[in-house]
Simulated assay, not measured.
Amino acid sequence: MQTSEPVQTSEPVQTPQTAHDAWRAGRRAAVTAPTGNLSLVETRWFAGDVDADEAARRVAAEREAAPEGVTVTPVERKNISSGRAEHGLRVWNAHAPAIAAFAEIETFPFDPNWIIDAEFTPVSADRTVPFEHIRDAGGSRDLVVPGDITFERDGQRFTLAAFDDAGQLLLVFGDPTNGKGDATGTYGSGRFLFVEREASQFGEPGRVRLDFNRAFVPPCGFSAQYNCPMPPAQNRLPWPVLAGERLPRFTGGFDIYTV
């Protein structure tokens, strides 16, 4: 019996533009998810010397009592003065007002000129850089910076600090677009950018790529319940970075700070 050969179909070739479009769609899905940035409605820190076991009991009790669509998770930080562990919880609402009012994340058009090759140079494993955080009233928290990221643009050489965010290099940077009120304005406290580098390679020098088209609005741009780091002095770039996300846009005059 003669059988026919299967029809060979080719998948669409992904271009930088279509890859960028897919990234934007993924970002929208992430921030609107039941535990995405827009759904965070409360961050509550337990008062007193609550240890990890007691914190776990309190979180479990809150989770048990939570209504449908609400998720309760533990959160931990170090006291900004003493370094002592502090425990708390976060409440995520899949039907949060911010999700209902969310329209889009305004974004610059994709521009390949904002994909920049850089060099990663590891540093001592105990090196930290003080990062001021948006809700710490001018205080700073020391974050581990595995290495320096160096690149050149417009005849200038820059060395940036990206910290270790749970095994990923996270660059917190600022530029003159931050807080501008025109069509080039971006989130006032700076933006974030993940740098592709495996945690196992933090101790090895090598090339990295900074794709500023994937610069994104930090979580605190979607909920006032986050405490985001702000760019240190060495991460403030002198020219406008006209790439990546600009600002979240909401309908009906919604404001995350008046919820």
Score class of each variant (00 low, 15 high):
residue 34 P to T: 08
residue 136 D to G: 04
residue 143 L to W: 04
residue 146 P to C: 13
residue 152 E to K: 14
residue 139 G to V: 01
residue 16 P to F: 14
residue 33 A to V: 05
residue 207 R to P: 05
residue 69 G to S: 03
residue 257 Y to K: 14
residue 167 G to M: 08
residue 12 P to S: 08
residue 134 I to C: 02
residue 163 F to D: 00
residue 241 V to T: 10
residue 26 G to S: 08
residue 156 Q to N: 14
residue 25 A to D: 12
residue 102 F to R: 04
residue 123 V to Y: 06
residue 12 P to V: 02
residue 117 D to A: 10
residue 128 T to R: 07
residue 86 E to P: 08
residue 58 R to Y: 01
residue 23 W to T: 03
residue 128 T to P: 10
residue 254 F to R: 04
residue 255 D to C: 11
residue 66 A to K: 04
residue 13 V to D: 10
residue 62 E to F: 06
residue 58 R to K: 13
residue 123 V to T: 12
residue 171 L to K: 00
residue 191 R to P: 07
residue 3 T to I: 12
residue 165 D to S: 15
residue 104 E to D: 15
residue 52 A to P: 07
residue 186 T to H: 12
residue 57 R to M: 11
residue 47 A to I: 02
residue 145 V to R: 11
residue 231 P to S: 09
residue 58 R to L: 13
residue 224 A to S: 12
residue 158 F to K: 00
residue 11 E to Y: 06
residue 158 F to C: 14
residue 247 L to S: 00
residue 173 F to L: 05
residue 19 A to M: 14
residue 61 A to Q: 06
residue 183 A to F: 03
residue 70 V to L: 12
residue 70 V to N: 10
residue 152 E to R: 10
residue 241 V to Q: 01
residue 102 F to S: 09
residue 206 G to L: 14
residue 211 D to K: 09
residue 69 G to R: 12
residue 16 P to R: 13
residue 44 R to V: 01
residue 132 E to N: 10
residue 4 S to C: 13
residue 227 N to T: 12
residue 36 G to E: 03
residue 204 E to V: 13
residue 250 F to I: 00
residue 201 Q to R: 14
residue 182 D to L: 03
residue 134 I to M: 10
residue 70 V to P: 01
residue 62 E to R: 15
residue 190 G to T: 05
residue 63 R to H: 02
residue 1 M to E: 13
residue 245 E to D: 09
residue 114 W to M: 05
residue 13 V to Q: 09
residue 193 L to V: 02
residue 47 A to P: 07
residue 161 A to M: 10
residue 55 A to T: 00
